[in-house]
Nucleic acid binder design. Structure first.
Lengths: 97, 97
DNA sequence: TGAATATATGAACATATATTCATATAACAA
DNA sequence: TTGTTATATGAATATATGTTCATATATTCA
């Protein structure tokens, strides 16, 4: 048990990032196509500030990456594990209903 | 976006349950074999109370199920999505290192 | 019945977290 | 430069959450 302490903490952090509805919505947006802050804010109906804060969290957790284009910053999913995780989770959630 | 509100909340709840190191350790224990509260508490080095509280959370979230045998209650994983989710998550976490 | 064991539960405390508001930085256009 | 747009960030507040401690319930055995 002890030797896996780091693994358990890393897993906990990963799932914690995915445990907020706002961040989940953002991740779903980005699974369609890359988007900038204002696009996301409008799509999910939240303030720019809230979205920006959450994108910062997601970036810290290496779930999204960003590219600056002019004055806009475009965000996208960091890798495709994220989508697979969601697919499995959706399966589980739907069966539970 | 709106029509999926319930889905996003369900997903958030699922991931939230998996976002605590104590609960992750418990789930890993149960992925080996069914166990009672005291077994788990000893294995992960936490009090019976803490483990019992977390098992209640896990049960509420339908991640574990329980069977009473005499004075002991044996817990086990509710389905095998849970293990698959962990496998994927571990892949992601390990690549990020 | 009484004592011991296994588990559950309620309250309280401490910590963590998401959002809001205000402000700051950066890029571009006029 | 000034004004506008896009994004980031810091502080503050309100809420949520995990653990501990104490207590309660349930089962078994003597």
């Amino acid at each position: 048990m002890k030797q896996n302490k780091d693994l358990y903490n890393d897993l906990a952090e990963l799932f914690k990032v995915m445990s907020d509805p706002t961040r989940i919505k953002i991740l779903f947006c980005l699974s369609k196509k890359e988007m900038c802050v204002l696009d996301i804010a409008e799509l999910i109906g939240m303030t720019h500030s809230a979205v920006s804060h959450q994108l910062a969290n997601l970036k810290l957790a290496r779930m999204v990456k960003s590219v600056k284009k002019g004055k806009e910053v475009y965000y996208s999913l960091d890798d495709d594990h994220i989508e697979k995780l969601f697919d499995l989770a959706i399966e589980h959630v739907k069966e539970a209903r």
